[in-house]
Write a protein that binds this DNA or RNA. Structure first.
Length: 316
DNA sequence: AAGGTGCCCAACCGCCCGTAA
DNA sequence: GTTACGGGCGGTTGGGCACCT
């Protein structure tokens, strides 16, 4: 079963690449493209295996590779994406033009991971760490998270991490779809879930403590017209769900992740727009396609698969 | 100056998946 | 349906370097 490793042939060079080898590889790919990686080394006159050539090219020699330190924006994007996707380095790299999965993986393991641990955040779950060594160091974060978690648990058993927030956003939007299509004259509910300047800004009576969301969320109860029920609790259509990423003051620096978010917003607009040419069934499938594209969490997949496979209750 | 230690990151390893024969 | 291949992916390694004692 399977096949033998491509590099097990004896006599093939391993280890660091020399400038001469790099030049041979670059010249060959410029002239002929890489074609079959296995055949490439012979054609290029390299005593390497194809896999080694491929890695050297994709991780180092490719002309569109961005060198240098990661910017704060890139770092934030990596953290946000990692909270959503886990160790899907290639998927994360897809949102950071010019960065390779290997580079991002290394940067995560050597910098971000340590930074998060120092901040008392578990780099795997993106939640405050609870092990005894870090309880004191993480006390402020724990208190803040507990504050928010308690509030949320009362209503919807949601946990404060980016993944849950993203899930809630998706459910939120799915439910909006249902509502919009169920009520022919639905009030135009604008849930700009990603476009806000920040989660806690622009809210009345907001506490000075940015982690204290009790005040900012308390008004939800007084807005029954703009609220809706869901399997996981009650949401306000206006602003209960924070954006995944705090928008940068400079919008030009927003990452490609926003593209996916914009697709979601676009779908939102289309489904809210009575003149939209999309059918509801199409909407449903499009949502499934978008969300399923990058969802990896099994729990989350279960929801998606269930939603996508079940007969649509409002099928035309 | 020399040895020890820890960090960084390019490169490798092994597994998995999609595809063609 | 099975097998082999090509390629992609995430995890791990180890050489080189900087810093510390």
């Amino acid at each position: 079963m399977g096949r033998s490793p491509c590099c097990d042939e004896s006599g093939l060079k391993k280890g660091p690449w020399t400038p001469e080898e790099d030049q041979k590889l670059i010249n060959h790919i410029r002239k002929h493209g890489h074609g079959s990686w296995r055949a490439l080394p012979k054609q290029a006159g390299l005593n390497r295996c194809g896999k080694s050539c491929r890695l050297r090219w994709t991780n180092y020699l490719r002309p569109d590779i961005k060198r240098g330190n990661f910017t704060a924006e890139e770092e934030q994007t990596i953290i946000n994406l990692h909270s959503l996707l886990g160790n899907k380095w290639s998927s994360i790299a897809g949102h950071l033009p010019g960065r390779t999965d290997n580079e991002i993986k290394n940067y995560w393991n050597t910098h971000i991971r340590k930074k998060l641990i120092q901040m008392g955040i578990d780099p795997v779950t993106h939640r405050p760490r609870t092990d005894h060594l870090n309880v004191l160091a993480a006390l402020p974060q724990l208190l803040a998270a507990a504050n928010f978690n308690n509030l949320l648990t009362l209503n919807q058993n949601i946990q404060l991490d980016a993944t849950s927030i993203a899930k809630a956003q998706w459910l939120h939007s799915m439910i909006q779809l249902l509502n919009n299509n169920n009520m022919t004259s639905s009030s135009s509910v604008d849930i700009n879930i990603f476009g806000q300047s920040s989660f806690l800004e622009n809210r009345p009576n907001i506490s000075e403590n940015p982690y204290d969301v009790t005040q900012s969320l308390s008004h939800v109860d007084h807005q029954p017209m703009d609220s809706f029920s869901s399997p996981i609790g009650v949401f306000s259509h206006q602003d209960i769900i924070p954006p995944l990423i705090s928008a940068s003051p400079d919008e030009s620096k927003q990452t490609q992740m926003m593209i996916k978010n914009k697709e979601i917003l676009k779908l939102n607009e289309q489904t809210s727009n009575p003149s939209s040419t999309l059918t509801f069934t199409q909407d449903h499938q499009a949502w499934c396609d978008i969300i399923d594209d990058e969802a990896s969490d099994s729990y989350w997949k279960e929801i998606i698969e269930q939603t996508c496979s079940e007969p649509w209750p409002f099928r035309e």
